[in-house]
Design a protein around this nucleic acid. Structure first.
Length: 807
RNA sequence: GCGGAUGUGGCGGAACUGGCAGACGCGCUGGUCUUAGGAACCAGUGCCAACGGCGUGGGGGUUCGAGUCCCUUCAUCCGCACCA
């Protein structure tokens, strides 16, 4: 008989939400645990089945932690600024504030229907002025410390809509909406100096409990490399071209230089360049390409030789040509490189295409591995010996790097240099629906931050969401808002009209949860000291580079100015896999494979939905939705429900189930901590199967089963438990196990002959080897197998396996 | 091109430091009960020329023993800023 989940789930949810069952306590003497999920963007489509995967996982852990006696903070909020609301407003002339409010209400009711144990009293919303007041406050602190600055950076500009576009909105070089070509347009923008924290962002990973793959991705993104800057004199000029290279050892093999199309050298010496038209033409073409496009063009190298200018290789004084090509990026290193085609794949391809000579300067140490430099670049660093390199000849690559840097430093033509791939954070958006940047520009004083007591700087209500001229923010049209006075000199000044990116609000939200209603500070010292650090943060892999890095950067900054007591925001970081449609493809409206959580809950109930999301596969891997499998989870809960019919009295485990119970407590406890939710659930299923086999279960066993299952399926378990006890499961301590009762005293071990399984025998745990040997040799199957064969060796791994090697 | 991952029955997946491959679930087959079943319960279910043999993407290797370790190769997914 199926249980009435609709009635039961509603009943318990009403109780939880009206009584504040899961509110974190303000008792700062208790041991605490802070679990965090990435707060959702409240999109118009409502909750995606992917959200509850992460939320249920941490809900399971949070519920267990409460039973373990922790004061648990498990908060929720909404990251509500962003593009879709704004684009919707442009199309339908509805204020983003209204749609955002509506979407949040929808999300809230959906989240509540899944029965998450969030602390709803601490709900935050990044678009709330009381919240973004502090986002703006942090920006001002960054500005005061010189970490926010203005720089000219290109934006994607749609030539049709005359709007700045996000990378996402540029598809194949054209505007996603109108199909017009997108060009790069220079614009003065606010930048945040995250690069100043690059080394700390790498070093401090060591003390964190992040998944290794997450640490690897962060490190790779920051991309520290050690190399050298080398100065190349320009032939006949007093000027020089500085390059960054990680392979200074190959300096003798540098046969040409390449500069980025945006490199200032071109303008500076335009009068010397004899093919200026060609160069300018190339530059123009490159500017039409988005970053994305430029990176796509990996098949075919393009470039133009800059005629009239030559560089001089400082170690051998040879004149080498200078090329311009977009495979060199102005944003990395010095925007120019020395090209060593014999030992770099990209340089090789380029040289090959334009028929530029190559000089091999490294040869394989291992004489067997012959290398043909005319076929491919030799890039192996480990196995290389320098040749054709004067005083470096005979050295290994490693030795040569050291020696050449010493030489360069001595001669004043270069120095060792650490470089990072990481670039400063472009913080301006030419958009309406974001936090206003609290800055004004005064002709006399330059950029000045607004006084902190004037925060929040409220985003003005507007009617026209269309962007301003030339890709300006819609705010640029708000004359009365823009014109203000300078906080410094009192003279005329203009407000910044760009807004902050969506990353801003999400860079510090975990701090606000600690003390969400504080009007004096972003959070009180007491709250910050007590909640300290997020103990466990789960989110998607797609946020492990940008969001995670940005918020670590802000946190470190806040630590530096004495606002927070910890160097790092998140102690532990895990990630969940995506949920795909049943066809194995990403869920999307156009593919028609979207699963609506409301419909699933309506048909199967929240508990079944939760169990299924946790059972569908390993938590950290992608999984495809399956309607058939979710039915099986519903069936499992029906079987749990029907266990009541077999209920017997008993205040302690009966002997036949005692071992199973202790093992289950152990297994489920560790599985939850390790996020192996799918195997925890399979343990429950096996237990239930066992009770059915014996057609009985006593009260003690049933209670423990319900307690263990409660974090996964909180409604049905509370309902069943309420029939056995006056307390709720949420108020009971997590069950404990006795290690000695998880060990079997009789075990089965396999017997192999030459590594092939032939039989299994049953022995007492820890039997002496001689006893086991006797039992093995008495086994009839084994005797038969051994007939006429010579035993070479017998291997016994205690309590594991017995293997006989024969000839 | 770079970075991160993943390949195990018809399907989703399990297997602690190398030690009985396929737990658990879906599906399928048979049975019980039933007016009926897309319900419930019970049993079976990796493959094959089945007393035996073969099996964890392919090919090598290490080992008494490999899904697990090493080399090599193929395929798929995700992210990206050609990172010198």
């Amino acid at each position: 008989m199926a249980y009435n989940f609709k009635e039961i789930e509603k009943k318990w949810q009403n109780k939880w939400y009206s009584e504040g069952t899961f509110f974190a306590k303000d008792d700062y003497t208790m041991k605490k645990w802070y679990g965090l999920i990435e707060f959702p963007y409240p999109s118009g489509q409502g909750l995606h089945v992917g959200h509850p995967r992460s939320y249920t996982a941490l809900d399971v852990i949070a519920r267990k932690k409460r039973m373990d006696g922790y004061n648990v903070l498990f908060p929720i909020g909404f990251d509500a600024f962003g593009l879709p609301a704004e684009n919707y407003a442009i199309k339908n002339h509805i204020h983003p504030k209204i749609t955002t409010e509506k979407n949040i209400e929808h999300f809230k009711s959906q989240l509540k229907s899944v029965g998450f144990s969030f602390d709803w009293s601490r709900e935050i919303n990044t678009t709330d002025p009381e919240y973004y007041k502090w986002t703006q406050w942090i920006f001002i602190q960054l500005f005061k410390k010189g970490l926010a600055y203005k720089a000219t950076m290109p934006i994607n500009f749609c030539t049709g809509c005359k709007v700045g576009l996000a990378n996402e909105e540029v598809v194949n070089g054209v505007c996603e909406r109108c199909g017009s070509p997108v060009v790069q347009k220079e614009k003065s923008q606010w930048m945040l100096k995250i690069t100043e924290y690059a080394q700390r962002l790498i070093d401090d990973l060591d003390d964190l409990d992040y998944l290794d793959k997450i640490k690897a991705q962060q490190k790779n993104w920051i991309g520290r490399s050690e190399g050298a800057e080398v100065k190349f004199k320009l032939d006949g000029l007093q000027d020089e071209l500085i390059v960054y290279t990680t392979r200074p050892d190959t300096l003798f093999g540098a046969t040409y230089m390449v500069i980025a199309p945006e490199h200032p050298l071109i303008n500076k010496y335009s009068d010397k360049i004899t093919n200026l038209a060609d160069v300018e033409d190339y530059k123009q073409k490159a500017s039409l390409k988005s970053d994305f496009e430029r990176s796509e063009l990996n098949k075919e190298k393009t470039g133009v030789e800059i005629k009239g200018l030559m560089a001089i290789n400082p170690v051998n004084n040879k004149k080498i040509p200078i090329w311009v090509s977009d495979y060199v990026l102005i944003s990395y290193g010095t925007g120019s490189i020395m090209a060593v085609p014999a030992h770099d794949t990209r340089d090789f391809e380029f040289a090959k295409k334009f028929d530029i000579p190559m000089v091999q300067v490294v040869s394989p140490k291992n004489a067997d591995s012959t290398i043909d430099i005319s076929q491919e670049a030799f890039t192996d660093v480990e196995d290389g010996i320098l040749i054709n390199s004067d005083f470096l000849n005979g050295l290994t690559v490693k030795e040569a790097k050291k020696k050449i840097i010493e030489y360069l430093q001595e001669k004043g033509i270069g120095e060792s240099k650490v470089n990072y791939k990481l670039r400063d954070w472009v913080f301006s958006r030419q958009r309406y629906w974001g936090e206003p940047i609290p800055m004004v520009y005064c002709e006399k004083c330059g950029w000045v931050s607004i006084p902190e007591d004037e925060l929040p700087l409220i985003l003005p209500d507007i009617k026209d969401y269309e962007p301003g001229e030339n890709g300006e923010s819609p705010l640029a049209k708000q004359e009365e808002w823009i014109n203000t006075t300078c906080p410094h000199c009192g003279g005329k000044a203009k407000r910044e009209t760009d807004t902050m990116p969506q990353w801003a609000g999400s860079s510090w939200y975990y701090l606000r949860y600690m003390d969400p209603h504080n009007t004096n500070e972003l959070a009180s010292k007491e709250a910050l000291n007590y909640w300290n650090q997020v103990d466990w943060y789960n989110g998607g892999m797609e946020h492990t580079t940008l969001h995670l890095l940005y918020s670590r950067f802000w946190h470190k900054f806040l630590y530096d100015i004495g606002v927070v007591p910890t160097k790092e925001p998140y102690h532990k970081r895990t990630s969940h896999g995506m949920i795909l449609g049943s066809n194995g493809e990403k869920m999307s409206k156009s593919k028609g494979n979207v699963i609506n959580p409301d419909e699933i809950i309506d048909e199967f109930g929240a508990d079944t939905f939760r169990i299924y999301e946790m059972f569908m596969g390993p938590f950290d891997q992608t999984a495809s939705w399956s309607m058939e499998s979710i039915r099986g989870c519903g069936k499992f809960l029906d079987r749990v429900w029907n266990l009541q019919d077999m209920l017997k009295d008993g205040d302690s485990f009966s002997p036949k189930f005692e071992k199973m119970m202790h093992k289950a407590i152990k297994k489920v406890s560790s599985d939850i901590e390790e996020m192996k939710f799918n195997t925890a659930i399979s343990t429950f299923m096996s237990m239930v199967n066992e009770f059915y086999r014996e057609k009985e279960i006593n009260k003690a066993e049933f209670k423990v089963l319900l307690q263990l299952l409660n974090p996964f399926a909180p409604h049905i378990t509370e309902e069943l438990y309420s029939k056995l006890s006056d307390t709720t499961i949420a108020d009971t301590p997590w069950p404990t196990f006795d290690e000695s009762k998880t060990i079997d005293d009789e075990i089965e071990i396999p017997i192999q002959i030459n590594g092939k399984l032939k039989a299994t025998i049953s022995i007492a745990l820890n039997s002496p080897e001689s006893t086991v040997k006797d039992i093995v040799h008495q086994n009839s199957v084994i005797q038969k197998q051994l007939e006429g064969k010579n035993i070479v060796k017998e291997i016994y791994i205690p309590n594991k396996i017995y293997n006989i090697v024969v000839k």
